[in-house]
Write a protein that binds this DNA or RNA. Sequence first.
DNA 1: ATAAAACTTGACCAAATGGTCAGATCAGTT
DNA 2: AACTGATCTGACCATTTGGTCAAGTTTTAT
Lengths: 216, 216
Amino acid sequence: MTNGNFKKPSTRGEKKKAILTAAEKIFAEYGFKGATTQMIADLAGIPKANLHYYFPTKEALYSQVVQTIFDIWLEAADSFDQKEDPASALESYIDKKMEISRDHPNGSKVWANEVTHGAPIIQDYLETTLKEWTTSREAVIQSWIDEGRMDKIDPKHLLYMIWATTQHYADFVHQVETLNDGQPFDDGQWQAATRDVKKIILTGVGLKFGGDDGNR
Amino acid sequence: MTNGNFKKPSTRGEKKKAILTAAEKIFAEYGFKGATTQMIADLAGIPKANLHYYFPTKEALYSQVVQTIFDIWLEAADSFDQKEDPASALESYIDKKMEISRDHPNGSKVWANEVTHGAPIIQDYLETTLKEWTTSREAVIQSWIDEGRMDKIDPKHLLYMIWATTQHYADFVHQVETLNDGQPFDDGQWQAATRDVKKIILTGVGLKFGGDDGNR
DNA sequence: ATAAAACTTGACCAAATGGTCAGATCAGTT
DNA sequence: AACTGATCTGACCATTTGGTCAAGTTTTAT
């Protein structure tokens, strides 16, 4: 069977994905410089030379990892737009971001690392995609404020607070777990965290907060 | 003049401090592995061999830097305790933490980096000093809640939100500046950020928020 | 079947980097 | 001036590491 023009999903594609997954974890744990291609190859279960067959340089691999994170981030951003009223929009955005912190902590860490080190790889994205998304969403929030639907604050600080707080549970998971007697959050604790974050932020900008979460 | 038993402040002490300042900046920008003792020495204006005369290993130097940050962090924690009522305590704590983000962004970044990489150096502090401080402050907040002085939330999530949000302005300064047309915050913007952060958090937990800031 | 293309890998290399060291220089003491 | 201990530094070394390469092996196309 020639498999026609289709890529055989079980070889090239899957192998690259396996390498990317390993890379995400190692980069998250050790940072760009701290990570070695040898560690990544070991975790992926292949020789280092083979890794370099698929990703010519460490930078190329890292770049791919960061790209993936950014896509997830943008996907979460969508959930902001699907609701009409301020409370629902913020709630579902926070829900989604907390979910990402739980399901993709490594990605979040890589992103944080990249940005704190001056975003050498993704500066373009910051200046274009991220900047545009942020500006337009600030406008939306501002219009809600102008319509008297929520309290007057600078929208950008609201967004930063949402980003910072939700990502804290991924980026600082080690600290959070240490303060939780070394245990990772269980379902109930994640639910409680999400609820409290939403409660404080929604109430904080003068929106009504229903109480329990509607997801999961 | 023999200078008696006093250390000559212009030599050893000051030199070490100069090295530490340089180290803080380099470690913040490049992470532990990414930083080289050569870079630090260059920034401090001394030969690498001289740096190793004062700090035998890179780890020892890094360890000192992290220690310094932690002291600053604890100092901020004090400002929480000097107020009686919830609103004042939280306000002055947030004020202080925003001040630190502005004045010691490098320190904050080093701390963030250390924690996201699993706190290999300061794990002890997390488990002892930080854990104790956090637990006791959670109790204080809980008592305020029990007395009906603020809304019912899990105190730990309030603390995490304060940490995450205030430190965001240091750790993610690059992103914040990029979204601010590449400009660093000016005095007014820092004031506005501080006000909005306090407004959202205080209001968010059911406390009264006066409005303008009382410091600076 | 056979040729071509894609993939795999052990061995290797050049550059970077943490740390050493012997000798030079400086400051304080007598 | 002579001595002593602290400080300074250029040259050097061992290790780590990103990346290469030639020699295979496997898969695909004809």
